[in-house]
Amino acid sequence: MDAQRPLNETGVLNLQDILQHAVSILQKYSHLYSYVESNRLDVFIERNHLKPAIKAILDAKWGHLSAITGLDHPGQPDASDPQHQKDHLEVLYHFCQKSIIVTLRVSLDYHDARLPSICDLVPVATLYERELMEMFGIHIENTPDPSRLLLPDDWPSGVYPLRKSFKGLENTSTMS
């Protein structure tokens, strides 16, 4: 076998430091955070703090934006997230450094589902934002390209397939 590399050792040691660094960057924007797994920190953040928080992460050169996940929580109380018990949409911004993942969680009401675009800070976010608009019906303000990315051209407007209420289209002309 290869000689044992020191990387694993230091990786374990650094883990706490990297997490602490993330907390120190983000505590200005939110006091609601939880350590969900040994390598993950979730930070619950208000919509108006989203961009400043992301800018702070980037300015500190803490990791990279790995993905943006949309979630739909209709009705049932959410055991993993006691802060939010009512119907809502949630958008998760996942930042990664080494094995650490910091997730900024923004909760949105159905009737006010809008978010500021972060493309001026992270250009690659444009694809994720277009996906959120199509799949969850979240309005992204000032996103550089709001056109359709994945759904077919004849997809009806106002139908958001990744919402839990979507069970299939009535008219399936696209199939035949």
């Binding site: 799949m135 994945l150 397939p161 069970k167 299939g168 399936t172």
Partner: peptide, 13 residues
């Protein structure tokens, strides 16, 4: 890989 998400199914399918 890019293109994943939606299935279009007949309502009785």
């Amino acid at each position: 890989c890019n293109d994943r998400m939606i299935t279009i199914r007949h309502t009785d399918s």
